[in-house]
Nucleic acid binder design. Structure first.
Lengths: 187, 187
DNA sequence: AAAAAACTATACCGATGTGTACATATCAAA
DNA sequence: TTTGATATGTACACATCGGTATAGTTTTTT
């Protein structure tokens, strides 16, 4: 159980978010983490492997946080869809929010063959499926359609907020989601 | 009127889109463009300046293309909003589409003080204003709200399509836009 | 034809990129 | 206390980064 490994992961995640992945060298990571490259390369065989683990941990943390929030604060399945954007807003407006990791990673690695790009794409797909699950539990027929629309709003809002802090995009996304959910329930 | 300057701009734009900005060195750019670094630095004082010009040209091309399409194919102002997503779809599904430049640039340069990030942010704002203009001409009251919602859908769809070609996200965005526009007209 | 301008070729600068070789320090098991 | 594995520090290899210096070649203008 190495705490140094976790430290490296945490520092890398932080630097990737604030400076970008390609702009952050391993020298910087080990310097901030207070260790050496030897140790980093003992735990991670390459920088790419480190990137992949950072992405995986970040996405897992997000989904865990979100589903915990939803399970703790709602009772009926339909309620989850309604409150979804409240928690997304809470996540986005947190002071340390610097954009959704998998969105930015896909932009930094545009090649679809690239492992980092593929993982990002997969995480985006997983998130859509999670939304589809919520829609399905809420008794909505065309779950895929609503899930994709909500994901567009959410990822768009995250993108907008990362581009300009305090943009308030999530407020409008929330309003739009209400309209779309209502429409999906009827149709 | 130097054609070599345009060639460099074009090649850089292409490489930035396919490989990413930070992953594309000036050596690669001049090699593909069939010239030398001396010439590149005659026209552009730094790589950052080249990036900024590539972004500006790309955004200008997009807005020109879109407004031309709208002006040629529609008559009444209200019609423009309806057909907007048809042209966005045409743009996104073009075989050489590799994502919206200013979205990806903002991800590669996360620091809000950075010049590239600021330009990207400004272009996103401009696009929103353009949408607000369309909404206003169509006689919609809360133009800002609709414009932001549509921009979320569009930028979200562009992001989704860049992440996974053939995702079809734009189809669902189009359906969502119809619902939101209708709702905005009523309210 | 002469001169000015545009372009190319090559070699280099210092800084930084990822990744390693090798030697030392630490510490548990024997 | 000796052994042996693990963690660490230093130093470096090699490539590439953005950017420049110098010199030679082609093209355009006068």
């Amino acid at each position: 159980m190495s705490t140094l490994r976790d430290k490296i992961l945490h520092v890398a995640s932080d630097l990737f978010q604030t400076r970008g992945i390609n702009s952050t060298g391993v020298d910087t990571i080990v310097a901030v983490a207070g260790t050496t490259k030897m140790t980093l390369y003992k735990y991670f065989h390459s920088k790419e492997e480190l990137i992949l683990e950072v992405l995986q941990k970040g996405h897992q943390d997000f989904e865990t946080w979100l589903s915990d929030k939803l399970n703790q604060n709602t009772k009926q399945p339909a309620e989850k869809l309604q409150k979804l954007f409240d928690f997304i807003e809470e996540w986005i407006t947190a002071p340390d929010f610097r954009g959704m990791a998998f969105i930015k990673a896909a932009a930094e690695f545009p090649n679809e063959e690239n492992a980092v790009h593929r993982l990002s794409s997969e995480q985006s797909r997983q998130f859509k499926q999670y939304l589809a699950g919520l829609a399905s539990e809420a008794g909505i027929k065309d779950t895929e359609s609503l899930a994709l629309q909500l994901s567009l709003l959410i990822e768009g809002a995250m993108q907008a907020e990362q581009m300009k802090r305090g943009s308030g995009a999530i407020k409008y996304a929330k309003k739009a989601s209400k309209i779309l959910i209502e429409s999906a329930i009827k149709g």
